[in-house]
Design a protein around this nucleic acid. Sequence first.
DNA 1: GTGAAAGCGCTAACAT
DNA 2: ATGTTAGCGCTTTCAC
Lengths: 339, 339
Amino acid sequence: MNLKSLAQHLGISASTVSRVMAGRGDEFRIAKETQRHILDEAAAMGVRPDELARSLRLQSTRTLGLVIPDISNPFFAALARAVERRARALGYTVLLADSQESDEVEAECIRTLLDRRIDGLILAPVGGDSAHLRPLIASMLPLTQVDRIFTALKTAAVVADNFAGAREAVKRLVKLGHRRIACLQGREDSSVIVERVRGYRAGLSEAGLRFEEKFLVGGEHSQAIAREHTLRLLEMKPRPTAVLALSNQLALGALEAVRERGLVIPGDLSLIAFDEQPWATLLSPPLTTLAQPVEDMGTVAVDRLCELIKRGGKATRKALTTLPVRLIERASIGPKKKD
Amino acid sequence: MNLKSLAQHLGISASTVSRVMAGRGDEFRIAKETQRHILDEAAAMGVRPDELARSLRLQSTRTLGLVIPDISNPFFAALARAVERRARALGYTVLLADSQESDEVEAECIRTLLDRRIDGLILAPVGGDSAHLRPLIASMLPLTQVDRIFTALKTAAVVADNFAGAREAVKRLVKLGHRRIACLQGREDSSVIVERVRGYRAGLSEAGLRFEEKFLVGGEHSQAIAREHTLRLLEMKPRPTAVLALSNQLALGALEAVRERGLVIPGDLSLIAFDEQPWATLLSPPLTTLAQPVEDMGTVAVDRLCELIKRGGKATRKALTTLPVRLIERASIGPKKKD
DNA sequence: GTGAAAGCGCTAACAT
DNA sequence: ATGTTAGCGCTTTCAC
C-alpha cells in the first residue's frame, strides 16, 4: 500500500496526499476535512510513505553512518548507544558498521555506506594509515571523526582529552612515591594511543623522571597480548612499581598477568586504567580508572555532524572538540613500598 | 556521478552500463571490449550504482534490521557483532536499532525499519507484551526472533537453552551440599527469564528441594536493583548459601551487595551467573558462569532469516532453534559450610 | 550486441 | 485549495 493507491482510493491526487502526510497540509491550505480524511484512512490502512522513494526524490536519506572498530569493546558500544540516541532524537537513523579493527574492512564499510547515500558519517578510524579514506574525503560527504582521529584530515573531530588524562594519572602515581612507572599501550599508530603516551611522557618529565623505553610496552588492542607484555614487565629487575594501562582491554590483560605471578595490587604494583567499567569497583582491590566522557563524545559527534549537514558540508568554527577525562581513584593504587 | 552520465560520457546507453556494472555483461553477450571500457572508466571516475535507486527499482534493499534492547549490554553487543559479520558475508547491510528496554521505543524502531523497506528483521524483543508487534506480523516481513522471544508469535526463533543451563547450575550447587539456593532474576515477563526460572525450579525439584518463593527475587535488568535484592537475601535468617544470578548485570549487583556486607565468596555464599565475560576470571574469586553461545545465536539468526527471505517469507522446518549453554566452573562456588 | 522506453513511489514546479 | 507532470537513478522488457 502506497500513497498513490491511497489517493486513488480516496479519489484525490497523490500530491495532496503527499503534502498532508508530510505534515504540510496547513502550509498548502488544504481543507481541514480533506486532511482529516487522508490521515484517518492512512492510519486505518497502515499506509506510510516509502522512505526509499522519498530519499531518492529528496536526495537525502536522513541516515547517518557510524563506523567503529569493535562493537564488543564496551567503550565503542557505549559510544554507539549515545550516537544512536542522539540521532534518533534529531530524526536520523543510524547505519552501524563494525570495521573489526581492519583498515580493509573499514574501507569496505565506508563504500557500502556511501552507496546507500547516507547524509553524513561518524568515523572512529581503525588508525594507522589513512590512505584508504581518500575516496571518502573526495566524496565531500559531511564527516566527523571521533575518538581515534587523523589530524591531517580536515574534518570535524571529537576526542577525549587523552593527553591530560594520562598525564594526571602519572602525576598521581608520582605523588604516591612511584618512580618506575610503566605504560601498557595499544596500537602505537592510533591517535588515541599517541596522545596518551604523550601525556604519560609529559607526566614523567614534569616530575623530573626519565622516560625509559623498556617501560613502554604493548602495541595491540588485545587482552592476550597485554598479558604477555605485563608478564615481561614483571620480570624486569628492578621491576616497575606502577602501571598505566591505556584501555580497559589492556587492563584486563595486566590483571591476568599480576594474578598469574601471585602478586598483589597495590602492594606489589599500582594500576590505573583508561575506561570506567561497571566491574571496576568489583575487582579486589577496586580499580582506579580514567573515565572517558563517552556519552558526550557520541552526542557531540552527532551534533557536529548535523551542523555540517545543515551547512552543506562546509566546516564551521574550530574543527576539534576535546572533552575532559576524569580520574576515579580507588584502591588499586597506593604508596610505593620501600625497595 | 551516476550510471547515466557515465553512459553519456562513453557514448553508450544506460542499459548497457547497468548490465555490465551488475556483472551480467557476459550473460547479455556484451562485447568484451565494451565491458572493459565501462568497467575501467567507472573505476577511474569512482562511479558506483546508487543503492537507493536500485532498491526502489528492485524492491529489495539487501538490508536487514536488528533490534536489541541494549547495545551497552555486552551480551547484545556480541550478538550484534555476530549478526553484522554474518550479514556482511552474505551481502547484506545491517540497520541496528536499540530499543532501550522500552516497548514503545521498540515499536518506533520497527516502524522506522519498515519504512526503510528492510528485507527482513531480527528482533530481540524487550519482552512482556507483544501487542505492539501486531503491525509487524501483519506486514508479513520475514522475521526471526532471538534470545527473548514470544512463543505465541509464529516466527523463526533462535534461543540459548536457558532451561537446561539454569537446571545444570542448580544441580551443581546441590551436589556441593547447598540446600538454600536463591535466584536473582530480571524482568519476569521475558521469555529468557521465564525459562531460566523454570530450569531453576526443575533443578530444585529434581534434588527433592522445595521451591521457596522468598528465594526468588528481582524483577529488573539492572545492577542497582540486583544489589538491593541481594542485600535483602543476605539479611534473611537462615540466609541462602548460594545464588544463581540470571545475567551478568545482575551478577554485578550481587557482587556489590556481598562486598558491602563484608561477606566472602564462596565461603559465605556461592555464586553462579549467566553470561561469560572477559572479567569473570579476574574477580576474586573467579566467577563461575553459564556461557551462552552468543556467536552462534547471531549467525544462526541471520541464516534462518535469509532462508525465510529466499522462500518469500514462508516458514520452513522447525521454528525454534535451541543452542546449548556451557557451565564454566570457577572458584566462586564451593561446598556448603556447616551451619 | 545494444538501445529506447517504462516504471519503482515519491515530491515539487507549475498549472488552474 | 487541489491536480498534472516531470524526474530522482536505476533495471528490465521489448525492439532491432
